[in-house]
Amino acid sequence: MNEVTTGRIEKKFKFLKKEGRAAFVPFIMAADPTLDLSLDILKGLPAAGADIIELGVLFSDPMADGPSIQAAGLRAKSAGANLRQTLSMVREFRKVDDVTPIILMGYYNPIYIYGNEKFLIDAKNSGVDGLIVVDLPPEEDKELCLPALKKGLHFIRLATPTTDENRISTVLNNTSGFVYYVSIAGVTGSKSASSEEVHSAVKNIKKYTELPIAVGFGIKTPEQAAIVSRAADAAVVGSAIVKVIEDNIDETGTPSDNLVDTVLEFVSSLSKGVRESR
């Protein structure tokens, strides 16, 4: 049913399969801490080991996010972030990188207000590969998921510890690109799941789909990223990265001179964890 996608995600996972390792997927919030620094970080992510990038879209009421990503949103807000600008950031990135997949991650309202149809066209044209919209469950697929698939954008669904056997097929139906397993029942950046829990959950979802499975929420260190990578096809780290940004801003809100480098160094260490895990 899909139109031809950009294929960046498919190509990436094919390549990684050959390499015999999992993908490392960092998350940053667009325009955190400023538009320029955020673009610098974004452009530096592939060289720091990012295989796929999740770019956060600002929303004033991020119901599934913990304090770190909430704070990232507030910084992005004061930097004047909006969805239009986030798309132009992706276009800037595409000038220097046409292979690393970019997934926009956020909540539905900014997209709805932008206009679903217009958003899908603009996102595709800007070089976005897929969407994760936290508050659009399968029950509301008609809204955005089906139109996105039709336009050739992947719609990546979240599966969670509360997604039981009865529901898993509902969740996987219409999911494309990969499946994002939220490894804990909780908000971003809170507790971490045990490696046994992650392994058995991934194994279980694999029974129902051939799509790659990414695992996120609660991965904070290279060691944890490595453990997850042994079971999953991708490890996502968000809160821990934006926390590094937070730690490199002083009380007056001024970013430190080496903020971008510090963030990218941390990203490198996480990616090394993933690369050396198998």
Binding site: Y108, V134, D135, P137, A159, T160, A185
Partner: peptide, 12 residues
């Protein structure tokens, strides 16, 4: 109306 919530909450 509708049900615009994170997947974790849907089963609940």
């Amino acid at each position: 109306g509708g049900r615009y919530v994170a997947e974790t909450l849907m089963p609940l």
